[in-house]
Simulated scan of single mutants.
Amino acid sequence: MHNKKLNISPAWIFRTANGELFEPILFRLLEGIRDTGKLTAAATNAGISYRHAWNLLNRGGHIIGLPLVIMRKGQGSQLSPLGEKLLWAEHRVDARLGPQIDSMTAELNDQIQQLLANTKPTLRLHASHGYAVALLPEVAEQLNINLQYRNPAEAISALNRGECDIASFHLPTCPQLARQVLSHYLDLLSDGSHRLIRFVTRREGLMLRKGEHPQVRSLKDFSESGLRFISRDLHSGTRILFNLLLEQQGLDANSINGSGQQEFTHTAVAAFVASGMADVGFGVQAAADQFGLDFLELACEHYLLIYRPEHLSQSALDHLIELLRAPELLERIDSVPGYQPDQPGQITGFDELIASDQ
């Protein structure tokens, strides 16, 4: 049986109007200087010579007309403001497009599997962006997981049309908020045939640059602060949850100083805040930790899988439940900040789940 999977790792090319470009290795060099404060160590980590590293920095500075690195004798090296902005631009591109690249990778591997004899069964999973669900294709041995990132409405719509086998859905552990979230999807869930599979819980809250804005200790503090906010896209489950939290506390959404831009993943929101382009974002703790941000928890939610029994074979369901309970997967979930296994593999319904949180 063919078990090898291909990965797509794009290299972002930054090119000027005159055709001058920054080699992709330059960004690994800048990252190394930021982390170590030494050009020699950064060059070694990037796998290039000190001379090559020096030439890359000089050439990059010459292209724009500003230095990328500040070097002081006896004090090591640090990124200049331009070097910081270039590196953060690359991080934001990666955070914004990474999930789309992951979806393309899943599609490619699915197509390869279909061309091979004796292939593993494929499970088509449409899911909201999350750090635990991203582990499923990596850990699965008995299944080929074709993971496509979609917002909840898109995922459930695809499930109802038979375009995927499993979708994801997330509900707050607060029963009142859970019922309000469900009300947004009544048209898609009205026939009562959907079943839930418990997977993980995750913590969501405000993300702020470390040590800044200590006056923000609650959602009310933030709403009154005037700090710049970067939001998720309008149809994401996280955006719906944030709006409901404002409503629950009697806060006006218009009081939030929104940037006017929306991001489509937790990672992209965190990168936007970490780069200084916004002061506050809302998302999962794992994204905040990934970019070294402070995290103020505001909610906990069940991240669930949802299916229609008439569209999923018992064999595929059994393989999936076995995967969700696999020791390797549970161990990796335990290492993701803010995530915890949530009776994985247990099949339930919406009413039963909400009642269990009473």
Rank of each mutant, 00 (worst) to 15 (best):
A95M: 09
R34V: 05
S255P: 00
P337N: 10
T16P: 13
Q262D: 00
I101A: 06
I145L: 09
A42P: 09
L244H: 07
T36M: 11
S335L: 13
Y50I: 13
H235E: 15
T36I: 12
I354C: 03
Q75T: 08
R209I: 05
K220M: 04
Q215P: 00
L39R: 15
H235G: 08
E20W: 03
E20H: 09
Q75N: 06
C164M: 01
S218Y: 01
L208D: 00
N257P: 08
P99H: 02
H129K: 00
N109P: 02
S225N: 10
L26F: 06
D294P: 12
T265K: 02
A117K: 14
A41V: 12
G32Y: 05
S356E: 07
A95V: 07
R150W: 07
V181I: 15
Q290S: 13
L125M: 07
G83P: 03
L320Q: 05
L189K: 14
Q314S: 15
V181L: 09
A95I: 05
R228I: 09
D334T: 12
I48Y: 06
A355I: 04
Q314T: 14
L30A: 07
E322G: 15
A316Y: 02
A17V: 15
A134W: 02
L21K: 13
D252L: 10
G283K: 07
W12T: 11
D342R: 00
E107Y: 14
A253T: 02
C164F: 01
F199G: 03
P327F: 11
H194Y: 06
A158I: 02
Y339Q: 04
V269N: 04
N109F: 03
S157F: 10
T44R: 13
A178Q: 01
L57W: 02
Q343P: 00
R202L: 10
L219S: 08
